[in-house]
Nucleic acid binder design. Structure first.
Lengths: 248, 248
DNA sequence: GGGGTGATTTGATCCAGGTCAACGGCGCGA
DNA sequence: TCGCGCCGTTGACCTGGATCAAATCACCCC
């Protein structure tokens, strides 16, 4: 919370010097292993705002780690329904759901001008053969993704509109902290309609809830920037109004 | 659909002779590799109805594959909200979400008397070191689980109550087919309240929708047994009434 | 069979949030 | 600078499904 903790993310051409490595693929690897890994990573591929990094159905060729910027992933089902599955920030890994059948199951789109590290899966696979700790980390990250989706499922299934928005703001704030940034002004780089789609609400409802939270002094909204004024209130609203669990 | 395709699942003490192996961990492995795998699997551990196979927070010691019966997985969040994440049937693997931090993130409960194969993760891990194809299969299954949850997210987020029930019935039917059983009488081994929790509805609504589908001749409900009379109608109802996708 | 218990169905009412519609603000190109 | 288009906000209204209540059904045990 202190203003002193404000710090810029230090980016580097190498994993070993990247300030995000503890969130990313290199976490838990020895220095030697990281050196091996960084030899096959192409750092800093730029993706323009609204451009696709990969599309649903594309053959899986690379995994991607976000360096700076933000992305969303979207699935479209046979009826043409669109669902945003997640928003991704520096340190996050994209493409893991493509291991099922070597094809991406969702589309990844940049929410702003974004740079990603590109990791070829064939070379990664060969390295995984040699490095058990890398295998563990990949499985850890997949398992993590699974847990994240389960948490989302719980939020969508059991919370009302205010709870959903509050949870999302808290999550975004927490993720900023993990990256060593101030938790407070979270930037909603996605549009209201995207927020609404992600949370299974209508954009009017998103707008109304944000307005209400601001009126009650819990947050301050200024275009895409949201200051969290009363974290405790936000936390309590994130659970209030949630459906009771029926005993089995 | 033909009555001739009715067949019992052939269970065996060994993976190599198990009729479910193409759905399960051994899929894609050579005969020799399967032999190695089955050496570390304890087949046929029984789990009584309503008993827990593992609990949220438990240390991850084993993965489990269902041989017969059915299970559910549940998460409880900090507010005490409960969400059922999935129902599992023969051939399904449980416990993959525990790789994140070596602890189970959900609780697994038997819906009926159920037998599971137990696979110790430490020994599995050592075997994975030796067998790249086993590693691929595990990653494939995790990736699959990820995609399944994404599909669920889409269903819960964008479909109305009738669409949710219809989708679920079709999914259960399809999974029966994958196991070589008749697609038609699906058995709802879970209670209405569990169905409701899973689909984020109230049990009264579940009941009403099932009644309506029966009245319209789409299905026939007899306690836990549901016959699918008009698959096409079910398919169309599974998408009708869904929310429009807002253009980005 | 009878009675108890929990699961399921059905009915009546209510409200959170979806829908439709109008307006305001900001950015951009001519 | 004006005008247009895209967001975002706000208001009024309506509906699907939640909620409350009660009846019925299935199952088990004595």
């Amino acid at each position: 919370m202190g203003a002193a903790s404000q710090q810029l993310e230090q980016l580097s051409e190498t994993c070993s010097h990247c300030s995000l490595n503890y969130l990313c693929l290199p976490y838990g690897l020895s220095q030697d292993d990281v050196s091996e890994l960084e030899r096959l990573v192409s750092p800093g591929t730029p993706v323009a705002m609204n451009a696709e990094l990969f599309g649903q159905g594309d053959t899986l060729t690379d995994l991607y780690a976000i360096r700076d910027g933000s992305m969303k992933t979207v699935v479209v089902d046979e009826d043409g329904l669109e669902q945003i599955l997640g928003f991704y920030y520096p340190g996050d890994l994209l493409g893991l759901d493509g291991f099922a059948d070597q094809h991406h199951h969702c589309t990844a789109v940049a929410l702003e001008s974004t740079r990603v590290c590109r990791i070829p899966v064939d070379r990664l696979d060969r390295l995984v053969d040699k490095l058990p700790s890398l295998r563990h980390q990949i499985m850890r990250l997949m398992s993590q993704a699974l847990s994240d989706e389960e948490r989302l499922l719980l939020t969508l299934g059991r919370k009302n509109s205010e709870g959903r928005i509050s949870s999302l703001l808290l999550t975004l704030s927490r993720r900023r902290e993990m990256r060593g940034l101030d938790p407070s002004p979270v930037s909603l780089s996605m549009k209201r309609s995207e927020l609404a789609n992600f949370l299974s609400m209508r954009l009017e409802t998103v707008s109304r809830v944000l307005t209400r939270l601001q009126r009650d002094g819990v947050i301050r909204v200024r275009q895409s920037r949201v200051d969290i004024l009363d974290r405790e209130a936000l936390r309590s609203r994130s659970s209030r109004g949630a459906w009771a669990a029926d005993q089995s």
